[in-house]
């Protein structure tokens, strides 16, 4: 299930925010700290996840820890769904 979520997220990030070679974006690539996504893009990702994965972020969960990579995002989604 995790790989499915990850590939959906990657597809979204690549088509909206990532201008480099898609193969260079791994599930562990740091998104916020590397500057690949800025704070507004991060909020867009949160909206995308809420709309597509049937989960809701509490206000304090919109933070660096959850948002910094495709992998941490997927973990968050799975943890919320179960």
């Amino acid at each position: 299930m995790k790989t499915e979520i990850e590939s959906k997220l990657k597809e979204y990030i690549v088509s909206n925010f990532f201008s480099g070679d898609p193969n260079s974006l791994t599930t562990d690539t740091e998104l916020l700290t590397s500057g690949i996504i800025d704070s507004i893009s991060a909020l867009e990702i949160v909206d995308f996840i809420e709309e597509n994965f049937n989960v809701e972020f509490e206000a304090h969960e919109v933070d660096k820890e959850n948002l910094n990579s495709i992998s941490t995002l997927s973990d968050f989604i799975i943890q919320k769904q179960t």
Binding site: S39, L43, V46, F57, E58, A59, H60, V62, D63
Partner: peptide, 10 residues
Amino acid sequence: SRNPRMISSL
């Protein structure tokens, strides 16, 4: 301040 949802919550 970069997290409007947090401002909403506050």
